[in-house]
């Protein structure tokens, strides 16, 4: 093998790296109605985190997708039970404004939540719609993170929509879940041009052909540019720089080793791998990782 990266060698030999751990900025847990996920329970997930050298994950339970009140309460329980592994995003369902109002007024009481998760494709409500406005204003005022599910060509969460709101709320740090999959040129240019927007790699390292999924996908659109992604990490690093990319897996959807392998075999330097696998996340989560230091 001609890949001579010392970090890659460590992962191949041990499954993890002592010097280059992983922080996963995009995970879930719990069963999900659309798919069987053999690693969806907490104990199995923690076993996988240990094996892969993942030192912290930021999560949203699948249950939040439908019933955010129930799901967010589970997230709080898991953070309280496993604070050494779990941080959380408070999931926002824009279709329930009364709940949002109540949750924002109580947000300072929640423990271990780094910000919010928006999944507009799943809630079929546009990211730029008025119902997200109170949350965006709150996050801007408190300088919080927002992980947004994004997908190229979507009517609900396209990269273009991220561009619009990221300019309007400069103190929110937006993490573009799936990096606006397929609409690569625009997504990467947004991350390059706006200091408060980051690319997140969940699903980016594998081609998406929705014709292979008999029941379709939760994301409604597939661009032809979804069919070939090898080299995308090098492209992102080249345009937006490794400082604007964070690691994610959708765990338990995707194997952390598969995701890490795509980065470890990308034609980029080890310093850039450090940025993507943990350093950028450490900066974004600085206030929440203080105890680790």
């Amino acid at each position: 093998m001609k890949n001579i990266s010392p970090i890659t060698k460590e992962y191949l030999e041990n499954g993890y790296s002592k010097t280059c751990p992983i922080i996963d900025m995009h995970t879930h847990f719990g069963p999900f109605y659309r798919h069987h996920m053999p690693a969806a329970n907490i104990n199995k997930m923690i076993e996988i985190l240990k094996k892969c050298g993942v030192k912290r994950i930021v999560s949203v339970p699948h249950q939040s997708f439908s019933d955010a009140v129930y799901g967010n309460s589970i997230m709080q329980e898991v953070i309280d039970s496993y604070p050494e592994y779990f941080l959380g995003y408070w999931c926002i369902n824009p279709n329930y404004q009364d709940i949002i109002k109540r949750d924002l007024s109580n947000f300072d009481k929640f423990r271990g939540f780094v910000g919010f998760k928006f999944i507009p494709d799943y809630h079929t409500y546009p990211l730029t719609g008025l119902k997200y406005k109170p949350v965006l204003e709150f996050a801007n005022e408190h300088k919080l993170l927002i992980l947004v599910h994004t997908w190229g060509g979507s009517s609900f969460n396209s990269p273009q929509m991220v561009l619009e709101i990221a300019k309007e709320y400069p103190d929110v740090r937006f993490i573009m879940g799936h990096s606006g999959y397929g609409d690569w040129e625009l997504s990467v240019s947004i991350a390059r041009d706006l200091p408060n927007v980051y690319l997140e790699l969940t699903a980016v390292y594998v081609a998406h052909d929705f014709s292979m999924l008999p029941g379709g996908s939760g994301t409604p659109v597939q661009l032809l540019s979804c069919l070939s992604v090898n080299g995308i990490i090098e492209y992102m690093v080249g345009i937006a720089s490794s400082k604007k990319i964070v690691f994610g897996t959708d765990l338990p959807w995707y194997s952390p080793h598969f995701a890490a392998g795509a980065i470890l075999f990308a034609r980029i330097g080890d310093e850039q791998k450090h940025d993507i696998l943990h350093r950028n996340a450490e900066e974004l989560l600085e206030n929440f990782l203080k105890e680790d230091k």
């Binding site: 992604v229 080299g231 995308i232 194997s255 995701a259």
Partner: peptide, 11 residues
């Protein structure tokens, strides 16, 4: 080349 080769290897 549709996927990144390294993913399948490390997995």
């Amino acid at each position: 080349p549709n996927n990144c080769s390294g993913g399948s290897i490390l997995q």
